[in-house]
Design a protein around this nucleic acid. Structure first.
Length: 258
DNA sequence: ATGTCTCGATCCTCGAGA
Protein backbone atom coordinates (compact mmCIF):
# COMPACT_ATOMS: atom_id res chain seq x y z
CA UNK A 1 0.00 0.00 0.00
CA UNK A 2 1.44 3.31 -1.10
CA UNK A 3 0.69 6.26 1.14
CA UNK A 4 1.82 9.74 0.13
CA UNK A 5 1.75 13.32 1.34
CA UNK A 6 1.80 16.35 -0.94
CA UNK A 7 1.50 20.05 -0.14
CA UNK A 8 -0.07 21.25 -3.40
CA UNK A 9 -0.07 25.02 -2.72
CA UNK A 10 -3.57 25.68 -4.06
CA UNK A 11 -5.71 22.85 -5.37
CA UNK A 12 -7.38 25.05 -7.98
CA UNK A 13 -4.13 26.21 -9.54
CA UNK A 14 -2.54 22.79 -9.05
CA UNK A 15 -5.32 20.52 -10.29
CA UNK A 16 -3.63 19.46 -13.57
CA UNK A 17 -0.40 18.73 -11.69
CA UNK A 18 -2.26 16.82 -8.99
CA UNK A 19 -4.14 14.71 -11.53
CA UNK A 20 -0.94 13.92 -13.39
CA UNK A 21 0.73 12.80 -10.19
CA UNK A 22 -2.24 10.63 -9.15
CA UNK A 23 -2.30 8.97 -12.55
CA UNK A 24 1.44 8.36 -12.75
CA UNK A 25 2.17 7.49 -9.14
CA UNK A 26 -1.17 5.86 -8.22
CA UNK A 27 -0.90 6.25 -4.44
CA UNK A 28 -3.49 4.23 -2.53
CA UNK A 29 -3.83 7.06 -0.02
CA UNK A 30 -2.87 10.69 -0.65
CA UNK A 31 -2.75 13.35 2.05
CA UNK A 32 -2.94 16.85 0.59
CA UNK A 33 -2.25 20.18 2.27
CA UNK A 34 -2.50 23.90 1.56
CA UNK A 35 -5.54 23.55 -0.64
CA UNK A 36 -6.48 27.23 -0.31
CA UNK A 37 -10.09 26.76 -1.30
CA UNK A 38 -13.39 26.99 0.57
CA UNK A 39 -15.32 23.82 1.34
CA UNK A 40 -17.63 24.10 -1.65
CA UNK A 41 -14.80 24.50 -4.14
CA UNK A 42 -13.25 21.06 -3.91
CA UNK A 43 -12.87 19.61 -7.45
CA UNK A 44 -15.00 16.58 -6.58
CA UNK A 45 -15.78 15.45 -10.12
CA UNK A 46 -12.16 15.52 -11.28
CA UNK A 47 -10.94 13.63 -8.21
CA UNK A 48 -13.66 10.98 -8.54
CA UNK A 49 -12.91 10.70 -12.24
CA UNK A 50 -9.31 9.97 -11.29
CA UNK A 51 -10.59 7.05 -9.20
CA UNK A 52 -10.40 8.52 -5.72
CA UNK A 53 -12.78 8.95 -2.84
CA UNK A 54 -11.99 11.76 -0.42
CA UNK A 55 -12.56 13.54 2.84
CA UNK A 56 -11.59 17.14 2.99
CA UNK A 57 -11.69 20.24 5.14
CA UNK A 58 -11.47 23.47 3.22
CA UNK A 59 -11.00 27.10 4.17
CA UNK A 60 -11.13 30.30 2.18
CA UNK A 61 -7.71 31.54 1.05
CA UNK A 62 -5.53 29.55 3.44
CA UNK A 63 -4.81 26.09 4.76
CA UNK A 64 -7.11 23.23 3.78
CA UNK A 65 -6.35 19.49 4.02
CA UNK A 66 -7.65 16.38 2.27
CA UNK A 67 -7.33 12.60 2.42
CA UNK A 68 -7.82 10.77 -0.88
CA UNK A 69 -8.20 7.00 -1.21
CA UNK A 70 -8.01 5.09 -4.47
CA UNK A 71 -11.18 3.13 -5.05
CA UNK A 72 -12.49 3.82 -1.54
CA UNK A 73 -14.14 6.49 0.54
CA UNK A 74 -12.09 7.44 3.58
CA UNK A 75 -14.19 7.28 6.75
CA UNK A 76 -13.71 10.64 8.40
CA UNK A 77 -13.12 10.56 12.15
CA UNK A 78 -12.45 14.20 12.86
CA UNK A 79 -11.64 17.40 11.04
CA UNK A 80 -10.30 19.37 13.96
CA UNK A 81 -7.30 18.76 16.16
CA UNK A 82 -8.65 18.68 19.73
CA UNK A 83 -7.55 21.10 22.39
CA UNK A 84 -8.42 24.61 21.21
CA UNK A 85 -12.00 25.43 20.24
CA UNK A 86 -10.88 28.89 19.13
CA UNK A 87 -8.49 27.55 16.51
CA UNK A 88 -10.43 27.76 13.25
CA UNK A 89 -7.62 26.95 10.83
CA UNK A 90 -8.30 23.86 8.71
CA UNK A 91 -5.02 22.13 9.33
CA UNK A 92 -5.99 18.61 10.36
CA UNK A 93 -8.24 15.83 9.13
CA UNK A 94 -8.29 12.24 10.27
CA UNK A 95 -9.89 9.22 8.63
CA UNK A 96 -9.67 5.46 8.45
CA UNK A 97 -9.01 3.73 5.16
CA UNK A 98 -9.48 0.02 5.66
CA UNK A 99 -7.55 -0.86 8.82
CA UNK A 100 -5.23 2.11 8.78
CA UNK A 101 -5.71 5.40 10.61
CA UNK A 102 -4.56 8.42 8.63
CA UNK A 103 -4.01 11.87 10.09
CA UNK A 104 -3.32 14.55 7.48
CA UNK A 105 -1.79 17.70 8.90
CA UNK A 106 -0.54 21.12 7.91
CA UNK A 107 1.48 22.41 10.83
CA UNK A 108 1.74 26.19 11.19
CA UNK A 109 4.81 27.80 9.61
CA UNK A 110 5.45 29.85 12.76
CA UNK A 111 7.46 32.71 11.32
CA UNK A 112 8.39 35.28 12.39
CA UNK A 113 9.94 33.73 15.47
CA UNK A 114 9.83 34.49 18.25
CA UNK A 115 6.32 35.92 18.30
CA UNK A 116 2.64 34.99 18.45
CA UNK A 117 2.79 32.91 15.27
CA UNK A 118 5.63 30.85 16.70
CA UNK A 119 3.72 30.42 19.96
CA UNK A 120 0.74 29.17 17.95
CA UNK A 121 2.99 26.69 16.15
CA UNK A 122 4.27 25.24 19.42
CA UNK A 123 0.78 25.04 20.92
CA UNK A 124 -0.47 23.31 17.78
CA UNK A 125 2.42 20.88 18.04
CA UNK A 126 1.49 20.07 21.65
CA UNK A 127 -2.06 19.33 20.57
CA UNK A 128 -0.77 17.08 17.79
CA UNK A 129 1.36 15.15 20.27
CA UNK A 130 -1.62 14.73 22.57
CA UNK A 131 -3.66 13.30 19.71
CA UNK A 132 -0.73 11.12 18.65
CA UNK A 133 -0.49 9.71 22.18
CA UNK A 134 -4.17 8.75 22.06
CA UNK A 135 -3.72 7.08 18.68
CA UNK A 136 -0.57 5.15 19.54
CA UNK A 137 -2.22 3.70 22.63
CA UNK A 138 -4.64 1.78 20.40
CA UNK A 139 -1.83 -0.32 18.96
CA UNK A 140 -3.09 0.07 15.40
CA UNK A 141 -1.31 1.13 12.22
CA UNK A 142 -1.36 4.94 12.21
CA UNK A 143 0.21 7.34 9.72
CA UNK A 144 0.48 11.05 10.57
CA UNK A 145 1.43 12.61 7.26
CA UNK A 146 1.82 16.14 6.09
CA UNK A 147 3.70 19.40 5.95
CA UNK A 148 5.23 19.59 9.42
CA UNK A 149 7.14 22.79 8.69
CA UNK A 150 10.02 21.20 10.59
CA UNK A 151 13.62 20.71 9.46
CA UNK A 152 14.46 17.87 11.86
CA UNK A 153 18.26 18.01 11.61
CA UNK A 154 20.97 20.08 9.92
CA UNK A 155 21.34 17.32 7.34
CA UNK A 156 17.78 18.05 6.21
CA UNK A 157 18.80 21.40 4.70
CA UNK A 158 21.30 22.17 1.95
CA UNK A 159 22.31 25.37 3.74
CA UNK A 160 21.45 24.80 7.40
CA UNK A 161 23.17 27.97 8.56
CA UNK A 162 20.64 30.01 6.57
CA UNK A 163 17.84 28.53 8.71
CA UNK A 164 19.30 29.37 12.12
CA UNK A 165 16.61 31.16 14.07
CA UNK A 166 13.88 30.30 11.58
CA UNK A 167 10.67 28.83 13.01
CA UNK A 168 11.23 25.67 10.95
CA UNK A 169 14.60 24.95 12.56
CA UNK A 170 14.54 26.42 16.04
CA UNK A 171 15.50 24.08 18.89
CA UNK A 172 11.96 24.15 20.33
CA UNK A 173 10.51 23.14 16.96
CA UNK A 174 12.93 20.25 16.56
CA UNK A 175 12.31 19.19 20.14
CA UNK A 176 8.56 19.13 19.49
CA UNK A 177 9.14 16.92 16.45
CA UNK A 178 11.25 14.56 18.55
CA UNK A 179 8.41 14.32 21.06
CA UNK A 180 6.49 12.35 18.43
CA UNK A 181 9.44 10.01 18.18
CA UNK A 182 9.49 9.44 21.94
CA UNK A 183 5.80 8.51 21.75
CA UNK A 184 6.80 5.71 19.41
CA UNK A 185 6.37 7.32 15.98
CA UNK A 186 9.14 7.00 13.43
CA UNK A 187 10.10 9.20 10.50
CA UNK A 188 9.34 6.85 7.59
CA UNK A 189 11.80 8.37 5.14
CA UNK A 190 14.61 8.19 7.69
CA UNK A 191 13.89 4.54 8.52
CA UNK A 192 13.42 3.31 4.96
CA UNK A 193 16.10 5.28 3.12
CA UNK A 194 17.63 8.18 4.99
CA UNK A 195 19.95 9.33 2.22
CA UNK A 196 20.76 13.03 2.67
CA UNK A 197 19.60 15.62 0.16
CA UNK A 198 16.05 14.29 -0.06
CA UNK A 199 14.48 17.71 0.11
CA UNK A 200 10.73 18.18 -0.18
CA UNK A 201 10.53 21.99 -0.49
CA UNK A 202 12.37 24.65 -2.43
CA UNK A 203 11.29 28.29 -2.36
CA UNK A 204 9.98 29.64 -5.64
CA UNK A 205 12.28 32.63 -5.26
CA UNK A 206 15.87 33.26 -6.17
CA UNK A 207 16.36 30.06 -8.16
CA UNK A 208 16.28 27.95 -5.01
CA UNK A 209 15.53 24.71 -6.87
CA UNK A 210 18.25 25.32 -9.45
CA UNK A 211 20.73 25.80 -6.60
CA UNK A 212 19.18 22.84 -4.73
CA UNK A 213 18.61 25.17 -1.81
CA UNK A 214 16.05 22.79 -0.33
CA UNK A 215 14.74 21.50 2.99
CA UNK A 216 13.05 18.29 4.10
CA UNK A 217 9.88 19.36 5.90
CA UNK A 218 7.17 16.98 4.65
CA UNK A 219 7.09 13.83 6.76
CA UNK A 220 5.17 10.63 7.39
CA UNK A 221 5.26 9.58 11.04
CA UNK A 222 4.46 5.90 11.59
CA UNK A 223 3.12 4.21 14.69
CA UNK A 224 5.03 1.03 15.63
CA UNK A 225 2.34 -1.14 14.04
CA UNK A 226 2.73 0.78 10.76
CA UNK A 227 6.52 0.91 10.97
CA UNK A 228 6.60 -2.89 11.29
CA UNK A 229 5.24 -2.97 7.75
CA UNK A 230 7.48 -0.32 6.19
CA UNK A 231 9.02 -1.53 2.95
CA UNK A 232 10.29 1.66 1.35
CA UNK A 233 10.03 5.42 1.00
CA UNK A 234 10.66 7.90 -1.79
CA UNK A 235 10.75 11.65 -2.28
CA UNK A 236 9.39 12.46 -5.73
CA UNK A 237 11.81 15.24 -6.58
CA UNK A 238 11.15 15.03 -10.32
CA UNK A 239 7.71 16.57 -9.95
CA UNK A 240 9.39 19.88 -9.09
CA UNK A 241 10.51 20.09 -12.74
CA UNK A 242 6.97 19.78 -14.08
CA UNK A 243 4.97 22.67 -15.51
CA UNK A 244 3.38 24.74 -12.76
CA UNK A 245 4.94 22.81 -9.87
CA UNK A 246 4.05 23.20 -6.24
CA UNK A 247 6.90 24.50 -4.11
CA UNK A 248 6.72 21.09 -2.35
CA UNK A 249 7.09 17.60 -3.84
CA UNK A 250 5.28 14.43 -2.73
CA UNK A 251 6.76 11.92 -0.31
CA UNK A 252 5.50 8.34 -0.57
CA UNK A 253 5.94 5.26 1.61
CA UNK A 254 5.25 1.63 0.84
CA UNK A 255 3.61 -0.31 3.67
CA UNK A 256 3.01 -4.05 3.50
CA UNK A 257 -0.62 -3.77 4.60
CA UNK A 258 -3.56 -5.45 2.83
C1' DA B 1 17.84 39.01 1.49
C1' DT B 2 14.86 37.75 -2.27
C1' DG B 3 15.21 36.92 -8.34
C1' DT B 4 8.01 33.74 -6.98
C1' DC B 5 3.57 32.02 -6.55
C1' DT B 6 -1.40 31.84 -4.93
C1' DC B 7 -5.46 33.80 -3.31
C1' DG B 8 -9.01 37.35 -2.74
C1' DA B 9 -10.93 41.85 -2.94
C1' DT B 10 -11.68 44.52 -6.17
C1' DC B 11 -10.24 45.44 -10.04
C1' DC B 12 -7.61 45.60 -13.77
C1' DT B 13 -3.44 45.93 -9.03
C1' DC B 14 -2.12 45.05 -4.63
C1' DG B 15 -1.39 43.03 0.10
C1' DA B 16 -0.75 38.94 2.72
C1' DG B 17 1.28 34.62 3.53
C1' DA B 18 4.64 31.36 2.66
Amino acid sequence: MKIATFNVNGITARLPTLLRWLEESRPDIACLQELKAPQERFPEAAIREAGYGFAWHGQKSWNGVAILARGADPVERRRVLPGDPEDLHSRYIEATVGDIVVGCLYLPNGNPAPGPKFDYKLRWFDRLSARAAELVAREEPVVLAGDYNVIPEARDAEFPAAWEGDALFRPQTREAFRALKWLGFSDAYLEADGAPGAYTFWDYQAGAFQRDDGIRIDHLALSPEAADRLRGAAVLRYTRSWEKPSDHVPVAVDLDLG
